[in-house]
Design a protein around this nucleic acid. Structure first.
Lengths: 165, 165
DNA sequence: CCAGATCGGAGCATTTATGTTCCATTTCGG
DNA sequence: CCGAAATGGAACATAAATGCTCCGATCTGG
């Protein structure tokens, strides 16, 4: 993941080196480059689906559910960043079910009155992923902990989504 | 740009086809792949610098200046998205002067009292780029105009940055 | 300690992108 | 309309990544 995230054109040899295994071993598990990429994509999707299950998006206040969505996805780590970065990988990720779950959540928040009614659902959806991505990507010089980044992410995201008072 | 944005591993032949020119002609202007990538990176950086000049970040209220920063960058278009997407391209873009200009702007906003004092400058910096990117990337099904995306981007960004009342 | 499984180095064939050259054709300015 | 410049198709050499096989070394569970 680290290697591909730094340079998606990295050769399989580079990837194997970075992983500390032999090119032969890498090939034993993924006979083609596409197999590796597909596996990455599939793994990321599976972990995201699991994260969404754990987040129980239909329960409790909508903004809290959005928070759980981010928290759970934060745990997934590097692989998620890689997939979100590469159109090639996230294209296969046209899992509309994820999108629908979030759009429903947004609609619920509006009904509750906790999410700004003016914000277009599609844009709110983008904002959730965008903030999640920014938070996961955030690595400032001084030692801000992973939790610190999550906290910043959630604070900003809530500002974007919440109803104006 | 379009071709590379869709698949950064696209071959020079693919790129030439997409551009409607011959591979020979492409090569005439960029003798190596790296020349092409470097040119893209340099062009994007130059346009960004020009955009920052036009935005006159040191003038007027800080949040307005942030707005101008986004507006001007919006005009740059696809090439900016491509560069922001590819670590390989934005790595050369370690133009710290841009970052400093924005960090100063953020500090000014805090001094003015228009930007939330609690927000870490580094995070505010990330939020600006993040929202800009999200806005430029935003292409929902229904015909939201380019201006609509910019407007959404600015609204959300201001919510993130502005002082809590 | 042994047998089976896993690992990974080395070498090789194939494919593919790339870099390069040449030349016929088209475009464009004067 | 002519000459210079630009274009792009074709062909080819080279380099590099990939796909593949073999075999000795290493690890692991019983």
């Amino acid at each position: 993941m680290r290697c591909l995230a730094a340079d998606f054109t990295a050769s399989l040899a580079d990837i194997a080196d970075e992983a500390g295994i032999g090119r032969t071993t890498l090939r034993r598990y993924f006979s083609e480059r596409n197999d590796l990429l597909a596996a990455i994509s599939a793994t990321a999707l599976a972990r995201s689906s699991a994260a969404i299950q754990r987040a129980r998006l239909t329960e409790g206040p909508a903004l809290d559910a959005v928070g759980r969505f981010c928290e759970e996805h934060f745990e997934i780590g590097d692989i998620l960043i890689l997939v979100l970065d590469q159109p090639q990988l996230s294209r296969a990720w046209s899992d509309e079910s994820t999108k629908h779950a979030l759009l429903e959540l947004i609609a619920r928040g509006k009904a509750e009155g906790t999410i700004e009614p003016e914000i277009p659902p599609e844009w709110a959806y983008e904002m959730i992923w965008t903030h999640l991505y920014a938070g996961m990507h955030y690595k400032p010089q001084d030692g801000t902990s992973r939790y610190g980044a999550l906290s910043l992410c959630l604070t900003s995201l809530k500002r974007v989504l919440e109803t104006r008072n």
